[in-house]
Write a protein that binds this DNA or RNA. Structure first.
Length: 217
DNA sequence: TGCCAGGCCGGGT
DNA sequence: ACCCGGCATGGC
């Protein structure tokens, strides 16, 4: 019925299950969401590995650790000075509002949680929604640069639309289900990386080429 | 080699 | 309300 659901099925068929953040703890996911801002996931994995090796993937340890030491551990993720501050801000928030336990966020209402996350310095809409969806398992659709690019390349929604307008499109035309949103966002990243790069796009063999100019509502 | 990666902030118009 | 420079490592 809806084009967006058809696109999901096409991507799912083309790429299969994405299983982002499988078996990771709630905190692993949230830390990963901050570290991966404008950064290749491969670099983030090295930083996460460094943290785990030092038993530093915990709210209290990151909260307490000297910034120089933390920066050194997450260096491979890039922007390490700014991301050190962002991790610190996030842990401050968890200590202050949730007594240092991110799991305590799970009982909260999704809209209130989103506002709280957005108020943390260093957490914007995509990072907040990634934490809500992948860490707290709330049905919040995540919009990435790839999501915008893929949809605008196919003339389904203009790239100049805002984050919230892109998000509303998914929230209003799809069932708000965690599993669907989880897979779908990951699939947009996958198809974007494979066929929708800024330079050398492969539009002629993209699995979504037949959806060009489709109406989205 | 240069460009890019699962953004966000702060200062300027 | 936008627009833009800065942030930084590692892979292709």
């Amino acid at each position: 019925m809806t084009v967006l659901l058809d696109i999901y099925h096409e991507l799912s068929h083309a790429f299969g299950p994405q299983h982002w953040w499988p078996g990771d703890t709630t905190l692993d996911v949230a830390v990963g969401a901050i570290l991966t801002q404008n950064t290749n996931w491969w670099n983030v994995e090295k930083a996460i590995k460094n943290l785990k090796k030092r038993d530093a993937l915990s709210v209290k340890v990151i909260h307490t650790m000297p910034v120089e030491e933390l920066a050194e551990l997450i260096r491979p993720a890039g922007y390490f000075n700014i991301k050190t501050q962002r991790l610190k801000s996030f842990m401050n928030f968890l200590m202050k509002d949730y007594r240092g336990s991110i799991k305590r966020m799970k009982t909260g209402g999704v809209h209130q949680l989103r506002e709280q996350l957005l108020s943390v310095n260093g957490i914007g809409p995509e990072t907040a929604d990634s934490i809500l969806l992948y860490a707290l398992e709330k049905p919040m659709f995540v919009i990435a640069a790839y999501t915008k690019r893929v949809l605008s390349r196919h003339r389904l929604l203009d790239d100049s639309r805002t984050y919230n307008e892109f998000q509303d499109l998914f929230h209003s035309t799809l069932e708000n289900e965690v599993h669907l949103f989880n897979e779908y966002h990951a699939l947009f990243v996958q198809v974007g990386k494979t066929y929708c790069r800024k330079t050398k796009p492969l539009c002629d063999i993209c699995p979504l080429r037949t959806f060009k100019n489709s109406k989205t509502n």
